[in-house]
Design a protein around this nucleic acid. Structure first.
Lengths: 258, 258
DNA sequence: CTATGGACTTTGTCCATACCTTTGTGAAAA
DNA sequence: TTTTCACAAAGGTATGGACAAAGTCCATAG
């Protein structure tokens, strides 16, 4: 019985489980106990590796599960941040890039999209971080229960006009979702606000846009986002989660009404 | 430009992506192209590692994504089996606890349920880990596209009789889904077996049952589950995903047919 | 004919290590 | 004051090896 064993066995029976699962459970317990409060950072991997007398690989495996369950969020250069103490997950949806967003649209048929141009009014400009009077691209997305089903939620995403070629580039080879849009575009979708999370992926995005990849501070990211709008549908800074931006989501009344 | 580079770039611009992502995309392409047909086994990890001139770790990372997307299923001692060629994603549903399951039933109207009592025959006893002749509670659940929609899948869940009060407790304040069940219970639901994932959430569950909250090893959890039945609808250990249990799901023909 | 026990294959787990990329910070330069 | 740069911290990617566990297959014993 080494110190490590004491750590793992302790007052609870973790026997028989692989190491990473034991560690995952311990961390999970700590989350539930409030030892790692929401918003705080977990100890870095190396530190945990020392504590649990395991390799970084094992720690990462444990943290992977915590992330997949929505407990924590990990960010290169920052750390592992607690985003939820229990499983009461908000409706999470991560789009890393325009490409990914379109990918979802095309592959799953769960999101149907339309692209138009709008002129920002003052309120909208404030919201998206643009200038009133500017022309932006508005991407309307609708999530469907199934290919022939009913709309569940409605997503609005804004992109500066200067990135039109990017939108067009991906919109070109789509096809299917436009057809779907055509079929179901009539009839207004009533609103009931919900929130959805979109995680920015600056690196992929810069690469995708052909910009020079470089270092991004959060400040820089925010400024770049509001000034140049590389991120889609990123409206408000979410203070509780340093890495997330809020999107406005409108849920169809048909979901609850009918 | 080494040989490896030729392998990866080929006719497709996968540059800039990490190695495992490139490999994942290539494998994904092969799945779409039918090179690895549904039901067949992918080459073993070591073989792929040689082919892509990478380490087994990298290959596993690529395969992990394929598994998470529902393309393949992995089993120790067998291999990596193709279970879906393109976007025909597996239907995943996580239920953390009885409460959560009922919550889904009541709030979303996606699951409609009925509770009866059955006597285990030998086969069933083997399946749920009980004794033949024992009386268990059978929960029949149906997932709907929407409140007035069509049934998608049919779920059977078994709980030992001794936990009847737990079931009753939640079944009491339901209402709507029983009404729905009544409306749609006639007419048999034809079967097309599908699998669904149920993640156990031991902490919430113990709390819910008034037991001492603590960590649960998977073995203990499984034993407790089969002997005491705290978890519903958890039948088989899913080796590919250490934290998941399989449920047996029967998909209605109406989904694909009609 | 059954079943029992190995040999073999394949994935699961775990380790130690190395280097890269991103991010934050602060000092230095403009 | 603002920008630029260097550095440290932390997670991301990748290698290579080792052993464990699970399943398949087959020869052999009963």
């Amino acid at each position: 019985m080494t110190t490590k064993e004491d750590d793992l066995v302790e007052d609870r029976p973790h026997d028989g489980l692989p190491r990473y699962a034991q560690i995952q459970k311990i961390l999970e317990d700590r989350l539930a106990a409030g030892i790692y409060p929401v918003g705080s950072l977990l100890p870095p991997e190396l530190e945990l590796a020392v504590e649990f007398n395991s390799s970084r690989t094992t720690i990462r495996e444990a943290l992977r599960y915590l992330r997949e369950r929505g407990y924590v969020e990990r960010r290169q250069g920052i750390g592992t941040r607690v985003i939820s103490d229990t499983s009461r997950a908000t409706f999470y949806q991560s789009f890393g890039s325009l490409e990914e967003l379109f990918q979802v649209a095309v592959e799953t048929y769960y999101v149907v999209m339309d692209v138009t141009t709008v002129t920002l009014d003052s309120e909208l400009a404030e919201l998206v971080g643009g200038l009133a009077g500017e022309e932006w691209i508005l991407i309307n997305g609708v999530r469907w229960t199934e290919p022939g089903g009913k709309p569940i939620c409605y997503i609005q995403s804004y992109v500066p006009k200067r990135f039109e070629h990017v939108v067009a580039q991906f919109a070109d080879h789509q096809g299917p979702f436009f057809a779907l849009l055509e079929r179901y575009s009539e009839g207004p979708i009533e609103e009931a606000v919900q929130e959805i999370r979109a995680l920015p992926m600056p690196v992929e995005f810069t690469r995708q846009l052909g910009l020079k990849p470089g270092s991004w501070s959060l400040q820089l990211l925010r400024r770049y986002m509001t000034q140049s709008g590389v991120l889609i549908a990123s409206f408000n800074w979410h203070p509780a989660d340093q890495m997330a931006y809020r999107m406005r989501i409108h849920r169809s009344k048909e979901m609850t009404g009918e």
